[in-house]
Nucleic acid binder design. Structure first.
Lengths: 159, 159
DNA sequence: TCATTTTACGTAACCAGTTACATAAAAAAG
DNA sequence: CTTTTTTATGTAACTGGTTACGTAAAATGA
């Protein structure tokens, strides 16, 4: 079966990126379910952040991951429900909720680290004959950070 | 602001792909809204398919785009509501719904083609110093088609 | 020809994101 | 001080995907 998105060349690119990212997401969910791991795809990001910084607020996570704050709230609420994250409110700024990893999280991390390692190795293999992929992805991200996609199109239309 | 996902290297890749694909999706929606165009991101895929094949069923679209059939039904229902798609049921197989572009779609397509052209040119520019991106993306897709991501991990764990 | 299996479509419930809006606390400005 | 603006968080409604399940028609096979 030929891939119509590929045949569209440039016009199919964003849909292919979405397809790839959705595939990774749903297969990873399925993987964790099969292995009976109490974790979701992308929770690793929060674990990694809190490993690196110990304590962070919702907004700090939101900025560092470049995710909207409601998205972070949703992830964090689930991780609180499973007992991986503890929160308390900042004494000097009562608006802020300070997040840190629980003892349970520290213990579970050992299991999680080993599966993440396998996943990373497999992704490495998928990229084994793609030596420019990461670097070129970064170039695209950088360009879009300098000027966003929508604005690029608007400017072009006004030329 | 440094990008934490980038710092995660391989481990941040799938989240970066999701972030990029979400960004393109939401900015494109926003773009069409600003321009008052009665179209959604990814409707172009259906337009292109029906331009190429004139008539297709839900399942044929689903296979060619590698999207689940409920996803196709949702897109197509919206496009029917805006009057771009006409349907009738196959005489010789009453299960099948045959889809084709309406006259309205053919007229609107002229406007849409011109904005898609600008979008494609801009994406081309984003990729201008990424000569391997499309080709390497395809390599990854091919590998995942040969054996899916989940199975790769499972196999590795059983080694 | 009739029972069984497969296929096409549809619906429901879920998921991970978004934007838009509300509220309360902190910071800035008068 | 007090008013105004900004910031941190939370909630609601929406979006474009998914899987799971149901149903009717077609194809298969005994």
């Amino acid at each position: 079966m030929d891939d119509f998105l590929k045949a569209l060349e440039i016009e199919g690119l964003t849909s292919r990126l979405k397809r790839l990212s959705d595939t990774m997401l749903y297969e990873t969910k399925d993987l964790y379910k099969s292995l009976d791991l109490e974790i979701e795809p992308n929770w690793n990001l929060i674990f990694r952040l809190l490993q690196a910084y110990q304590e962070l607020t919702i907004m700090e996570i939101s900025e560092r991951l470049q995710l909207s704050h409601p998205a972070v709230i949703k992830i964090v609420n689930k991780m609180k429900k499973t007992g991986y994250i503890l929160t308390y409110s900042d004494k000097s700024d009562k608006r802020k909720q300070i997040l840190r990893l629980s003892e349970k999280a520290m213990v579970k991390l050992r299991d999680f680290e080993s599966i993440w390692e396998v996943q990373n190795a497999e992704i490495g293999k998928l990229l084994s004959d793609c030596p420019h992929f990461m670097e070129e992805l970064e170039k695209v991200e950088t360009k879009l950070r300098e000027q966003n996609y929508k604005q690029r199109i608007i400017n072009k239309l006004n030329e």
